[in-house]
Design a protein around this nucleic acid. Structure first.
Ligand code: MN
Ligand code: MN
Ligand code: ZN
Ligand code: ZN
Lengths: 149, 149
DNA sequence: TGTCTGGGTTAGAATTGTTCCAAGTATTGA
DNA sequence: TCAATACTTGGAACAATTCTAACCCAGACA
């Protein structure tokens, strides 16, 4: 984890009356360490390696604080568990329907979409569903590695 | 409901071994009647007006059949209840974060997104979050009409 | 120093949205 | 007419998330 990043996170939390507790540091470190868009449960499993006492409730609380302070993004790709991403640059996601891995993709510079009149855009959520390189050749069933951590 | 549409639906279901039962007709009619991207529960409430015996399990079953036969789309905009849409032309969605209404928007002709190499796209899901015309002027809290059905 | 205050952590209960199940019903086609 | 198959139903089960109540802890302040 980059020290400058951590300092920024610290003050971003403080600005909203949140503390950068050891649990929140650990949850944030987990997000930075393996940027594979883990679910809350996967974050929980990884965070427990260095902090065995941490609870699921705390993981949800920490992720919520990080998302509220714009230090992490919640990514809702399908129904089912939300995923989390510490990349705060605007970007979309490629979701492999076979191995369920998620990849960041850049958004097009000029979306050029005609909105209903009077609408104000807050953010774009682009999800591209398909097959990643590892899974593209297969036809049905599942391929590629899943649940690696 | 357009008769030609209904006939097409009938055969689309039949092709997959599904029947266009009175319940499925009713659920489909509800989707066509008020194209506001209702949740399963809202479909249930509306369907009960003409078919008081219908159950939630059947509404889920019917929506599932319609989605499988490509007669309706499941739209997963946020965490929480999925929404359903009978518009099968490719389109994205504008989601008002205040009143929670959903509007169809046309997709740009050429998205022009650089994907991870080797990826095969199945479909795009574009969701634009923001404020609709009715809710744009407001700052915090909620405005606009909600849950009208 | 003692204690007040407010956020934080925890386990477990509750809630939400969805899927599954078992039993009975309806439709189809030999 | 009979068997196979699909369908509907209420309720149980389930998964993801949120809520609750008890305790913890750091910093403010008397
Ligand atoms: Mn991402
Ligand atoms: Mn739509
Ligand atoms: Zn894959
Ligand atoms: Zn609105």
């Amino acid at each position: 984890m980059d020290l400058r990043d951590e300092l920024r996170v610290d003050e971003r939390l403080a600005r909203r009356g949140f503390r950068f507790t050891p649990q929140r540091q650990q949850v944030y470190a987990v997000l930075l360490q393996q940027r594979d868009h883990p679910t809350a449960e996967r974050v929980f499993i990884r965070a427990k390696r260095k902090m065995p006492e941490i609870s699921m409730a705390t993981v949800y609380n920490c992720l919520d604080a990080l998302v509220k302070c714009e230090v992490a993004r919640l990514v809702a790709l399908e129904r089912g568990a939300a995923r989390f991403c510490p990349n705060m640059r605007p970007h979309g996601h490629f979701y492999c329907t076979v191995c369920e891995r998620v990849f960041d993709v850049d958004l097009p510079a000029a979306p050029g979409i005609a909105l209903p009149p009077g609408c104000r855009v807050e953010r774009y959520e682009l999800a591209i569903h398909g097959r990643c390189a590892a899974c593209a050749p297969a036809r049905p069933g599942r391929r590629g590695k899943r649940r690696s951590g």
